[in-house]
Computed example of a mutant assay.
Amino acid sequence: MRLWSLHPTLLDRAALVAGWREGLLAQAVLAGRTKGYLNHPQLQRFRTTADPVRAVVTYLAGLRSEAAARGYRFDVTRLDTVPDDELRLTVTAGQLAYELDHLRSKVRLRAPDWEPRLTAPRPHPLFTVVDGPIEAWERP
């Protein structure tokens, strides 16, 4: 499961589509509808909120907005609730840099024309950047 902290505009088609699919899986896990991935480390940041399901839905809404801008159809009826546009989580600068490098390595193989867009890390609208190394939940 990879729930990118990067801004959805940085994600190539494969990362955006996979992020949507894996975000929906995260929503099911956090809502208690599945027994798999219960202890996945990337879910920790959503579990720290007052409403983890709304937090992941807010994350998914950011992906859906970018998908719509590209002409993709991500089904909003699959979201369990409405996003919270005021919600903000933090992500470290080290995590964003790590994810940008990780995405670059994937894009070089599957969509090399996309790589020039990956010049600087920007966070998903849900996240506010704070100083710090790679997040403790990341498994590099």
Results as ranks from 00 to 15, higher is better:
Q42R: 07
E66H: 11
W114G: 03
V129W: 03
K106D: 11
R122T: 06
D84T: 10
H102F: 13
R117F: 10
T48S: 05
L103I: 08
S65D: 15
R139Q: 01
S105L: 12
V107W: 09
G71A: 13
K106Q: 07
V129N: 05
Q95W: 02
Q27R: 13
L87D: 09
R73L: 14
L60H: 11
P83V: 02
R108K: 15
T92N: 01
R73W: 01
G132T: 01
K106A: 11
G19F: 01
L63K: 15
G132M: 00
E135G: 07
S105A: 11
L38I: 04
R108S: 06
A97R: 09
L103K: 03
D51T: 13
H40W: 08
D51L: 10
D12E: 12
F127N: 00
D75W: 12
P112Q: 07
W137K: 03
R139N: 05
V57W: 15
T9P: 04
T119S: 13
A69G: 11
G19H: 10
L103V: 08
A67R: 12
V82Q: 12
L38G: 14
R45L: 05
R21L: 10
N39L: 15
F74C: 04
A15Q: 03
L24D: 02
E135I: 12
R88S: 01
D84L: 10
R33Q: 14
R88L: 01
T48M: 08
R70W: 12
D80S: 14
Y98I: 00
P123T: 00
R104C: 04
Q42F: 06
L109C: 10
P83L: 14
L38T: 11
S5V: 05
A55G: 09
Y72V: 11
H7K: 10
L60F: 06
A61G: 02
T128R: 06
R21A: 14
L43W: 02
Y59S: 14
A14W: 08
R88P: 00
A14M: 12
L96A: 00
E99W: 00
D131E: 06
A28Q: 11
A31D: 05
R47Y: 04
A50H: 15
T49P: 03
F127E: 04
E22N: 13
H102I: 12
L10K: 06
E66P: 07
Q27F: 04
T58Y: 09
L25W: 05
E138T: 02
Q27C: 10
L60R: 15
T92W: 02
A69N: 09
P41A: 11
V129F: 02
N39T: 12
R33H: 11
P52V: 15
W137T: 02
E86W: 04
L87Q: 07
K35A: 10
E86N: 14
T49S: 13
T128I: 05
L43N: 01
A31P: 03
L63Q: 14
T81E: 08
